[in-house]
């Protein structure tokens, strides 16, 4: 019973180092899946240009929220890792007193195959599906105040995870790089108004995007720091996110450079099948 309580306590705690915890449980119960979730808030610096609205860069700051679900699962004979990453940001940018607001929401689904290199380093290579939408809103413009953004892409994604000991705890440094390779995006023609599109004149507003006309990438660097307070432990995550989007389609040049510093907490969930749990801890 005491052991059972310990297991329940472990499941409810925010566990800093998932491998250690995994071994602790797997002595008795087979863990089906480990899910690491984190929610992050932060502030950002932005630099946006969209020549549909203005030929000049608008710079300023904003807020950033992201939520990541990273899970470890076995598919066939291979160990795979899957990531669902939700990102959203809002910005307030200016150019010589003119104001431009930005709001972007995006989600990506990634699958990785891990490669262990030594005891501490793990490299992950995989593919990603990206979906992103939002708008830039220029308060100075009359008939063309908005540049809507909508795109989906298939991206190459890679990750490096490095685990290292600090003060008897395992800290985890992680770097992730996503590069969109091919996709489609909403792209109005050079002088096409949204009013005209509203009349149904929408031929040519969807363009094929690839690295030559849409050279973009996203870098994410994070550091997971385990914190222990009395009998509880949790993990703090500090991140730097550089979302660097660029496009040059239909003579409209656009960039949205977004550098965010975020912090949040990591929660690790061990998913165990009910029958396995009952098998191990049945009172009969």
């Amino acid at each position: 019973m005491r052991k059972f309580r310990t297991i329940i306590a472990l499941l409810s705690l925010l566990i800093p180092v998932m491998t250690k915890a995994q071994f602790a449980i797997s002595d008795t119960i087979r863990t089906e899946r480990i899910v690491v979730k984190s929610a992050q808030f932060g502030v950002s610096l932005q630099n946006n240009l969209d020549t549909y609205l203005s030929d000049y860069k608008y710079t300023g700051g904003g807020i950033h929220f992201s939520h990541e679900s990273f899970r470890d699962a076995r598919t066939g004979n291979y160990r795979w890792k899957y990531q669902i990453l939700f990102n959203s940001r809002a910005g307030f940018n200016m150019q010589e007193g003119n104001i431009q607001l930005a709001g972007i929401v995006g989600c990506s689904w990634s699958g990785y195959h891990p490669f262990k290199i030594g005891k501490r380093l793990q490299l992950l290579a995989g593919a990603q599906i990206q979906l992103e939408g939002g708008a830039l809103y220029n308060l100075s413009n009359g008939n063309n105040p908005v540049a809507a953004k909508l795109r989906t892409a298939i991206a190459a994604s890679g990750m490096a995870i490095y685990r290292f000991p600090v003060f008897k705890s395992d800290w985890i440094a992680r770097y992730q790089l996503d590069i969109p390779l091919a996709g489609v995006m909403f792209a109005p023609e050079f002088g096409q108004s949204y009013y005209e599109m509203s009349l149904g004149h929408i031929g040519g507003i969807v363009s094929f995007a690839y690295p030559l006309n849409n050279p973009s990438w996203r870098h994410m660097l994070s550091l997971d720091i385990p914190l222990h307070v009395k009998h509880h432990s949790t993990t703090l995550r500090l991140s730097y996110i550089a979302d660097l989007y660029q496009s040059n389609i239909n003579h409209i040049r656009c960039h949205m450079y977004h550098h965010a510093i975020t912090f949040g907490f990591v929660r690790t969930i061990f998913k165990i099948k009910r029958e396995n749990l009952l098998k191990a801890y049945s009172p009969y």
């Binding site: 609205l53 010589e96 003119n98 413009n141 008939n143 063309n144 005209e196």
Partner: peptide, 19 residues
């Protein structure tokens, strides 16, 4: 001509017939 707007480096706003 339906007008559209843009801005100058000094922030002045320009509106012109575009469509």
């Amino acid at each position: 001509g339906m007008p559209m707007s843009s801005t100058l480096p000094n922030g002045w706003s320009i509106r012109l017939s575009a469509c």
